[in-house]
C-alpha cells in the first residue's frame, strides 16, 4: 500500500496516501465527534491547519476536502471562538453604519490580505471586509455567499474581526431589506390559504400505508 507519514498533534502516523485529512485522523485512531459534520465541504465544521516540511507558510483548509501529503503537520481546529453581538434584525437598518456599530473591529482592517490567503473556499475575504467598511452590503453578501463559517480567517486576522458573523449579518440585511421581494412567494402563500392544495393533502392523509408506499415509489423525481 502506498503510504505517507503525517504528524497529527505532533505525533507521526503512517497512513494510506490519498486519504483526506479527516479520514487520515480516523485511520490513526481519532474519533471525531466535534470538528466534523457533513464530510462534504459544506458545513465548515472541519477547519484544519497544517504545515508542509520545508515550507514557511501555515496553511488552512477543510479536513474533509484536503488530501494528506507526506510530511504534513496537522492540527484540527474544532471551533473558532468569535464574538457575535445580539441584535434584532427588525430593529436594524441596512447601512454600513449598522455593520460598524455591531462589529467595530472592522475598522481595524489594515488590508494585509491574511484572511483571503486563509480561506479554504478561495473567497476574496479582504474585499468583503473592505466592502463592509464602505457600506456596500449587497457586495458583502455577494462576496461571502459561499462562506462555510469555518473560522480560519477569523483565527488568523490581526485585526481580530469575526468575519463569518459580519457576513451573516450582511446577508440577513441584504435579504430582508435590499433584495427585491419575490412576488410569486406571496402569491403562492395566498393560494395555499385559499385551499388550492387541500384536496390533494386530504387524499394523502386518508391513504392507507400500502397506497402511500406505492405513491412514493411512483413519484416524479426531478432530474
Amino acid at each position: 500500500m502506498n503510504e505517507v507519514t503525517v504528524f497529527i498533534m505532533g505525533k507521526g502516523y503512517r497512513v494510506p496516501a490519498g486519504l483526506t485529512i479527516m479520514k487520515a485522523m480516523e485511520y490513526a485512531g481519532y474519533r471525531l465527534t466535534r470538528g466534523c459534520g457533513c464530510r462534504g465541504g459544506y458545513c465548515g465544521a472541519c477547519a484544519t491547519v497544517y504545515r508542509l516540511k520545508g515550507d514557511y507558510k501555515l496553511y488552512g483548509d477543510l479536513a474533509c476536502q484536503t488530501t494528506v501529503q507526506d510530511g504534513m503537520y496537522i492540527a484540527q481546529l474544532p471551533f473558532t471562538p468569535a464574538e457575535r453581538p445580539a441584535y434584532r434584525l427588525e430593529e436594524l437598518q441596512a447601512r454600513g453604519e449598522t455593520l460598524l456599530a455591531l462589529f467595530p473591529e472592522l475598522a481595524r482592517c489594515v488590508a494585509c490580505n491574511t484572511c483571503t490567503k486563509a480561506c479554504p473556499q478561495k473567497l476574496e475575504v479582504m474585499d468583503a471586509v473592505q466592502a463592509a467598511l464602505r457600506g456596500d452590503i449587497p457586495g458583502v453578501a455577494d462576496l461571502t455567499f459561499d462562506c462555510v463559517s469555518c473560522g480560519l480567517c477569523t483565527m488568523r486576522c490581526p485585526a481580530e474581526i469575526s468575519h463569518h458573523h459580519v457576513w451573516q449579518l450582511a446577508r440577513r440585511l441584504n435579504g430582508a431589506y435590499l433584495t427585491p421581494r419575490a412576488p410569486h412567494v406571496a402569491q403562492r402563500v395566498e393560494e395555499v390559504r385559499a385551499g388550492k392544495f387541500k384536496g390533494e393533502l386530504d387524499r394523502l392523509v386518508a391513504m392507507p400505508k400500502e397506497g402511500l408506499v406505492a405513491a412514493y415509489k411512483a413519484r416524479d423525481i426531478e432530474p
Binding site: 489594515v110 467598511l133 464602505r134
Partner: peptide, 21 residues
C-alpha cells in the same frame, strides 16, 4: 478591488503591516 487607503498615513515606521493597505 481597491481597499481603504487607511484614512491616515501611519507614522509608525517599523510596523510595516500598517503600510500594506
Amino acid at each position: 478591488r481597491w481597499n481603504c487607503c487607511g484614512t491616515v498615513f501611519s507614522l509608525v515606521q517599523d510596523d510595516l503591516m500598517r503600510h500594506v493597505g
